Amino acid sequence: MKRPFVFALCICCLFSLSGCWNKFELTDWAFVQAIAMDGSPDGKVQLTTHFYKPGGGGSLEGGQQGPSAFNITTKADTVFEAIRDIPLRLGRKAQWSHMRIILISDQLGKTRNIKELTDFFMRDHEPRDTVTVVIAKGTAKDYLTEKPFIESTIGQQLREMSRSAARLSSKTKDVDMLNLAIQFKSQTGIAMLPYLYSNGFPGEALSKLAVLKDGKLVNDFMNSANVESLVILRDEFDFGILEIPCSGDSGKKETIEVTSLHTKKRVTTDAESVSVRFDTKIKGSFSEIRCTSALNTDAENQVVERIRVYLEKELRKTIRLSQQKKLDLLGIGDWLYRHRPELWKKWKPGWDNRYAKADFDLHIDVEVVNSGVLISKPYYE
């Protein structure tokens, strides 16, 4: 009696096992690598979708290589409608789980709220939170027509450029969908995205930041020097090189490879004002020596002081710039929201003006670990 019962139970279990119930076959999908969003004269969103072409990199007759990707352009009032129009031109359904990067033109970012433009990709289950998001100067779709240097598609190439630029140079930020969603929840309404621009592609493709206020692009004034200073102040400096001018008007510069950099922020408040102190500790090694010679104790102290003075000047320049624009790029408002919620509730309506009048104090500690050679002087002397 037990055997028929066990057999029946096994049959029931087999029916309960999950299987592949998706009605789409592999040949029904087209895998997205990147998208570019632009505006159009009629006020609609122009969506250029960059698809990976399976087998496109294989050899054809004559030993030539076929294209590994192609672009489809659609236009509609909303992003989702433009996406649903893709099968009309392609004959396949777009699949978003392999998407690498989203490019949004700066002109579109000034007229449309970027929160709305990215809403579909944050809600849909297919796009991953790790998709990189950047602002592109000019027409965003033009960047998707370029050929990649080493990656299979330009979408993957741009994504790797964004990640490496932030990690290895600290002249920009690497922002993905998850990070952007967190920035959109900022109490000050400030968000920052990498700024992609072309001066003979790739040129200096990623060494700026685009600043958003309440979801709209308000400025692209953050050049590479400002970004380095901003990243230092926000304690987000990962790795990079600092160029330190020599004394006098020679125009020469020496380079320091930063091996360790940490910044601590301390905020104090009274009844009507706020003061912020930054303590920055930097360790680094000389990479190029052009005007420093014989680093004995006195000479080393002079070099350290020259580095400290220069960095303080650059940091203060970035702080003044953010205060002039009344843009809290340093996250002071978010700190107050977390640590002084009652005070922040009172200050939030007029925070931009209060931030512009805030006092900032900088304390920088520099340590030169080594000069890279036994003799600390220019090798050609």
Results as ranks from 00 to 15, higher is better:
31 F>G: 00
32 V>I: 14
347 W>D: 02
152 S>E: 02
135 I>R: 13
154 I>D: 05
43 G>C: 09
189 G>A: 07
356 A>K: 03
11 I>V: 12
109 G>Q: 03
366 V>F: 05
155 G>H: 11
136 A>W: 00
20 C>R: 14
2 K>E: 13
196 L>F: 08
260 S>C: 03
175 V>L: 05
11 I>Y: 09
15 F>N: 00
269 T>Q: 02
132 T>E: 11
341 P>C: 05
292 T>H: 00
302 Q>T: 13
233 L>G: 09
132 T>S: 07
39 G>V: 10
49 T>M: 07
313 K>R: 14
57 G>H: 14
215 G>A: 07
62 G>I: 06
76 A>M: 00
262 H>W: 06
355 Y>N: 02
339 H>I: 02
369 V>S: 13
127 P>C: 01
167 R>M: 05
217 L>V: 03
188 T>W: 07
77 D>K: 12
140 A>R: 06
268 T>I: 08
54 P>A: 12
100 R>S: 15
103 L>A: 02
228 E>W: 02
37 M>E: 01
312 E>A: 06
324 Q>A: 09
275 S>V: 03
231 V>H: 00
207 S>L: 01
343 L>M: 15
26 L>N: 06
155 G>V: 01
181 A>P: 03
89 R>E: 05
69 A>M: 02
371 S>A: 11
228 E>P: 03
276 V>S: 15
353 N>D: 11
254 E>N: 14
294 A>M: 04
115 K>D: 08
8 A>P: 07
14 L>R: 11
318 T>K: 13
303 V>A: 08
270 D>M: 15
171 K>N: 06
261 L>I: 06
209 L>W: 01
83 I>Y: 00
262 H>R: 08
88 L>W: 06
152 S>I: 08
188 T>R: 13
96 W>G: 03
326 K>N: 14
231 V>E: 14
181 A>Q: 09
226 N>S: 14
149 F>M: 11
194 P>D: 04
297 T>K: 15
3 R>E: 12
342 E>I: 15
194 P>N: 08
317 K>Y: 04
112 R>P: 14
197 Y>F: 11
332 I>G: 05
104 I>A: 00
38 D>G: 11
282 I>C: 04
195 Y>P: 12
80 F>H: 07
113 N>T: 02
100 R>I: 11
